[in-house]
Design a protein around this nucleic acid. Structure first.
Lengths: 184, 184
DNA sequence: ATGCTAACGCAGCGATGAGTGCGATAATTT
DNA sequence: AAATTATCGCACTCATCGCTGCGTTAGCAT
């Protein structure tokens, strides 16, 4: 008795999904956050509102889906041979990503949509950081605690992006790596 | 020709303002963030929707007003005599404040309402931190850079509150002070 | 090639949020 | 105490968001 809930991710469904995701990004980039309503997204995506209502249900779930897919697999974990090199390269990439105003708008909206919105933006970053640290440990090097790395590296970076009007340059972000490794 | 835009903050106006502010907090604490609409706030506050429309105009402006007033003057800047003591006491208070789920809900909603929502939650924190550092400088002690203090202290704290599911205990928050003063 | 069915589009309904003109109330001034 | 006017409540209109049957299209399997 195979109760396999069949899904069909190919062809039109994927096209619709992509169009809706792009529409969410476009609307957040141009309009006010309150304007992000399901009919508006559907119209922008060239899709019928009914489709969005049925597949995602609410704006919050839609945003969570868009955010997790946008913030996953977008940055490749570097392998420079040393922990410092890996971290600096990775932090530089993450900081550069946070330079984009559209990315910030998506993050803000996702955070505002529910209690778990913030996690959706950073789970993959945590996984990447863990991968970098694990690889250094496999090399036999001394590694910092993961939580401490998150606090020291991602904390200031995302704080500047969301709570401060300070720009977060990639050079400054690389500097955070030095602070972490110095106090290890 | 005095074009003074007269305002009258006494009596009923203040009462309405307080009721609306409390209603925003209550709704964010109980309902979903999308349920925070002006008619809902007005109903909860026992005030006519027209009043809210005229005084605040939009949910975003209302949230910004509530957030700035909620996150201003709520924590008294301590004066223990030493920089470390001041910072530890202050960080402990800030961390404790962030323990309240209702506070987090308000912060999330404010962030999601617009590009400057995050700043509304932290301007007063920055002022307080500046005051602490300035006082230590007046004492003649060695002081860290303000920006560096913001990055090291508030960064990890607010990151945990918004982006991570890690609890931010006040003891852990006090530990951040040690890291800052060690790398000064 | 054909059947099955998940996924989409269409038409339309009910509910409600956004906004306006006008009179009433109450805070502030003279 | 009386006048002034900022502020609020009421009644009402308009726009549109959320949602539901129903028929149609197009993946996926045999």
């Amino acid at each position: 008795m195979t109760e396999a809930v069949q899904t069909r991710p190919g062809g039109r469904s994927a096209r619709v999904r992509a169009a809706v995701h792009r529409a969410v990004g476009d609307l957040l980039a141009t309009e006010s956050p309150e304007a992000l309503t399901i009919p508006a997204v559907a119209a922008r995506a060239g899709v019928h509102p009914t489709t969005v209502y049925r597949r995602w249900g609410s704006v919050a779930q839609l945003l969570a889906d868009v955010a997790t897919s946008r913030f996953s697999g977008d940055i490749v974990v570097p392998d420079s041979g040393t922990l410092a090199g890996d971290l600096e390269r990775w932090m530089s990439d993450v900081a550069t990503d946070l330079t984009d105003p559209d990315v910030l708008a998506l993050m803000r909206a996702t955070i505002g949509s529910g209690p778990e919105g913030g996690c959706a933006c950073t789970v993959d970053r945590h996984d990447q950081l863990r991968a970098i640290i694990d690889r250094e440990r496999a090399r036999g090097g001394k590694v910092p605690d993961l939580e401490r790395a998150i606090d020291t590296l991602l904390g200031p970076l995302y704080y500047r992006a969301i709570f401060s009007d300070q720009p977060a340059s990639s050079a400054w972000a690389r500097g955070l790596v030095a602070t972490l490794l110095a106090t290890m």
